[in-house]
């Protein structure tokens, strides 16, 4: 197996990395670029902990080859805050205890942001279905939904 060079953009910054042909984007983000915010909970697209955006589209980075990222724009949890200024979703998760252990939180924040970028005023049911691919075992989802809705309301009034 010979390595592949990939040129891409991560959180707005141009990045080059090398990877193996069978390496997932998740492994490249974590292992090559040190961006360990995205987590591997299953490696099979069933838990959503590795959620990132690719060209604006929400995906599981475990289900994409790193080589496929050539020329793409990748967004990860590390890019959500602007410096020390938290995104309203991040602040809302803190304010509403939308996390306990926090390991699903990066994926949920990336996914929730992708939702609110498309639909600024979702119903609870829309939030629940959009986030159905993001497993959380700690919270029972209740406070997550509240946190997303509170952030959505705040973003609408901003």
């Amino acid at each position: 197996m010979s390595a592949i060079t990939v040129s891409t953009t991560v959180n707005g910054d141009a990045v080059d990395f090398i990877c193996q042909p069978d390496e997932s984007l998740l492994d490249a983000l974590r292992g090559r670029l040190g961006l360990t915010g995205a987590k591997e909970g299953c490696g099979t697209g069933d838990c959503g902990a590795c959620s990132v955006t690719v060209n604006g589209r929400l995906v599981c980075s475990c289900l994409m080859l790193a080589a496929e990222a050539e020329g793409a724009e990748i967004g990860t949890v590390e890019g959500i805050a602007k410096g020390n200024a938290l995104h309203p979703l991040q602040q809302s998760f803190l304010d509403h205890a939308g996390l306990q252990c926090g390991v699903c939180t990066p994926g949920i924040l990336v996914a929730a942001k992708a939702l609110l970028d498309r639909n600024p005023d979702p119903t609870d049911e829309e939030v629940r279905y959009w986030l159905a691919g993001n497993l959380c075992r700690c919270t029972g989802y209740d406070k997550i939904i509240r946190a997303v809705q509170s952030a959505a309301a705040q973003m609408r009034s901003a």
Partner: peptide, 9 residues
């Protein structure tokens, strides 16, 4: 099919 994430691909 699958989650929102899976739908994206």
């Amino acid at each position: 099919i699958g989650s929102t994430q899976v739908q994206g691909r």
